[in-house]
């Protein structure tokens, strides 16, 4: 790939998605763009990039979609979901008074595994929330990933990455070679294309936000921007789950650490007592 092509592509991807591509990621760029070049029967990546530069909106969307990492899995890292089930959900139940409603956001939901893991976790304890209105919202910049997430149909390979086999039997049926999530869980989740760089406030407020293994792709300024927007979406005692290798430390003062090793942070409001949080560190 020509250096000027790389510069053009990297600038475009960063502006549109926040994804930072350093020079050592040339191989990644080529790996993700070459299938697009072949699908569209173009001659080269250079021709593809010329189309982007000319303002072809459909092509731009296709390239952003191709560039997004879709590496995901059910119950990724496991312990954050144990914390959600054993700490956050019980605290929501006892702290909401007459309000029998809560909402969870999965930001960077990709093909839906995280949002569906959240929904299955809630479903497992649904007897504790009789009559409650529960919403799990999944957002991702990739429209093709969102389309897959909305279907709730997974391959044998997908359902083995992190999904306990008893949970598989409980919530999925097998149809031919595919595993299909049942309607009850799928119906709890609404997935929609959404760019984290855009305004998020119209999504509404959330009791917990999962934004795991997303910030790692952003530069410091973009991380700060996104974290500030997520902080505004969280209710006063809300909880933020980041990836195990992600942190707010040194980036944003809108959160305080609950269990940084597990990427668990609580909303922090300067005018609120620090103890006000749905989350607590527990020995998992």
């Amino acid at each position: 790939m020509l250096p000027e092509d790389f510069e053009l592509a990297a600038r475009f991807v960063k502006d549109r998605s926040g994804l930072v591509l350093t020079r050592d990621k040339v191989y990644l760029l080529e790996n993700r763009l070459m299938p697009v070049v072949r699908d569209l029967r173009l001659k080269s990546v250079s021709e593809l990039l010329a189309g982007i530069a000319s303002g072809d909106a459909a092509l731009q969307t296709t390239v952003i979609d191709a560039m997004m990492a879709k590496d995901t899995g059910f119950f990724r890292d496991w312990k954050p979901f144990v914390h959600f089930r054993t700490v956050v959900l019980p605290n929501i139940r006892v702290s909401r008074g007459m309000k029998t409603r809560f909402r969870i956001l999965s930001a960077g939901v990709s093909t839906g595994q995280e949002a569906h893991s959240i929904a299955m976790t809630i479903r497992d304890v649904s007897s504790s929330f009789p009559g409650w209105q529960v919403e799990v919202i999944g957002i991702d910049i990739s429209a093709t990933a969102i389309a897959a997430a909305s279907k709730g149909i997974y391959s044998q390979f997908d359902v083995q990455r992190g999904l306990p086999v008893r949970t598989l039997l409980q919530y999925f049926t097998k149809q031919e070679d595919a595993w299909v999530l049942n309607d009850a869980v799928r119906g709890m989740v609404k997935c929609q294309p959404w760019n984290l760089l855009d305004d998020l406030f119209s999504l509404g407020r959330f009791d917990a936000i999962f934004c795991r293994n997303v910030l790692v792709y952003f530069d410091l300024k973009t991380k700060l921007d996104v974290l500030q927007k997520l902080a505004r979406l969280l209710v006063d005692d809300g909880v933020l789950y980041l990836g195990l290798n992600e942190t707010v430390t040194g980036v944003s003062s809108n959160f305080r650490a609950v269990d940084p090793a597990l990427g668990i942070y609580a909303a922090h409001r300067a005018d609120r007592p620090a103890s006000l949080s749905l989350a607590a560190k527990v020995d998992l």
Partner: peptide
């Protein structure tokens, strides 16, 4: 599971599948 299995991996598998099952 009835015979006493704790988990179940369907072949073909890869290291990520094994790793995620052992974390569980």
């Amino acid at each position: 599971l009835d015979a006493g299995a704790d988990e179940y991996i369907m072949k073909p598998f890869d290291s990520e599948i094994v790793r995620s099952k052992l974390i569980l």
